[in-house]
Simulated assay, not measured.
Amino acid sequence: MTIQTRISGTGSYLPGEPVSNAALIAAHGLESSDEWIVERTGIRSRHLAASGIASSDLALEASRRALEAAGRKPEEVDLIIVATSTPDYVFPSAAALLQSKLGITNGAPAFDVQAVCSGFVYALTIADKFIRSGSHKCALVVGAEVFSRILDWKDRGTCVLFGDGAGAVVLEAAAEPGLLASAFHADGSHHGILSVPGQICGGVVTGDPFLRMDGQAVFKFAVKVLADVANEVLDAAGMTAAQVDWLIPHQANVRILQATAKKLHISPQKCIVTVDRHGNTSAASIPLALDESVRAGRIQRGQHLLLEGVGGGFTWGATLLKF
């Protein structure tokens, strides 16, 4: 029998209370306005982790909720993959720290995936291949970020866009198809339009430790590759966009979401949007949007979901699944 995979549970976590555009502007003395931010991005608020709260802490809460939803105990997990660009440490990985916090001592492999905003799709695709190979049966796949730690609060073009949070899924071996098709790609020649071009060397920061972005270039690139990779997985599964019940794109900017849905001829009503309340949570954005919609009763078992993301690198990918 061919091994398939399915998502058996979802979970998410947002730290603290929502921070409105007005509160953010006031806190950092930004030359901006709520109207300016909403008009250009669709973002009205975001969540920011308190000092001392790390990506693995957010991942822990999201993972507990996903495991509960799946009816699984931590010790049943035999693979942990965390997608993050803002890990707690240089090493060990956020996945290893999460494993420790969950009390998992069964020797399950645990590692991070760094593909920025495409990270969750990358991680889900990797976990799917592990399970289909027969080597593992129950994977915990997480996207967790504290992007607030790498923002230049004087740069109004970037600091208003991002938020912190985590989302998780439990992916299990199954007899019936769940994940139908996946694809992921990268093109490093575009690294300059979105990056954090700094590092720690000799105990000090070298280069620029803050997120830098060419917004117009990112928009053009994102809309093109998101449409292309969505069509790639639809073709691979022998399906059309009309058969998709919900499009769950990376929550970067409402304009990118709208443009992508239009290019795919998917109704705006079928596009899950959380960027207005979460901001861009990078690798956490897709599992956050997924879990919120599942718990709200919008997403139902048996429906077809198209997940897709694009991020610095540049990286991009998509997964088509039957939930």
Results as ranks from 00 to 15, higher is better:
Gln199Ser: 09
Gly313Ser: 10
Arg298Gln: 10
Ala237Val: 11
Val229Asp: 01
Ile272Glu: 03
Gly309Gln: 05
Cys271Arg: 02
Pro268Gln: 04
Val233Ala: 06
His265Ala: 12
Asp276Thr: 13
Ile266His: 00
Gln258Ser: 07
Asp235Pro: 02
Lys220Gln: 12
Leu247Pro: 09
Leu305His: 07
Ile200Gln: 05
Lys263Pro: 01
Gly207Thr: 09
Ala289Glu: 00
Gly312Phe: 09
Ala241Val: 04
Thr240Met: 03
Val254Thr: 13
Asp214Thr: 08
Thr206Asp: 04
Val294Leu: 12
Met239Ala: 06
Gly238Thr: 03
His250Lys: 07
His304Ala: 15
Met213Asp: 08
Cys201Glu: 11
Ala296Cys: 07
Gln251Ile: 12
Leu247Cys: 11
Val294Asn: 11
Ala261Phe: 04
Leu290Gly: 09
Val229Thr: 11
Arg212Phe: 07
Gly309Val: 11
Trp246Thr: 12
Ile299Phe: 09
Pro209Ser: 07
Phe221Thr: 08
Gln300Asp: 03
Gly215Pro: 01
Gly302Ser: 12
Ala236Pro: 02
Leu257Thr: 13
Gly313Phe: 12
Asn280Arg: 10
Thr206Pro: 05
Lys270Phe: 06
Ser282Lys: 09
Leu247Arg: 07
Ile299Thr: 13
Ile256Asn: 10
Leu264Ser: 03
Gly207Asp: 11
Asp245Ser: 14
Leu264Thr: 05
Arg295Phe: 11
Leu234Trp: 02
Phe210Glu: 11
Pro249Asn: 14
Cys201Ile: 01
Gly238Cys: 04
Phe210Met: 13
Ser267Cys: 09
Gln303Met: 10
Gln300Tyr: 00
Arg295Trp: 11
Gln243Asp: 15
Arg301Lys: 14
Ala222Glu: 01
Val223Ser: 01
Val204Met: 12
Arg301Met: 07
Phe210Gly: 06
Ser285His: 12
Val275Arg: 08
Glu232Tyr: 00
Arg212His: 07
Asn280Leu: 08
Val244Glu: 05
Val310Trp: 01
Asp276Ile: 04
Val225Gln: 05
Ile248Val: 15
Gly203Ile: 05
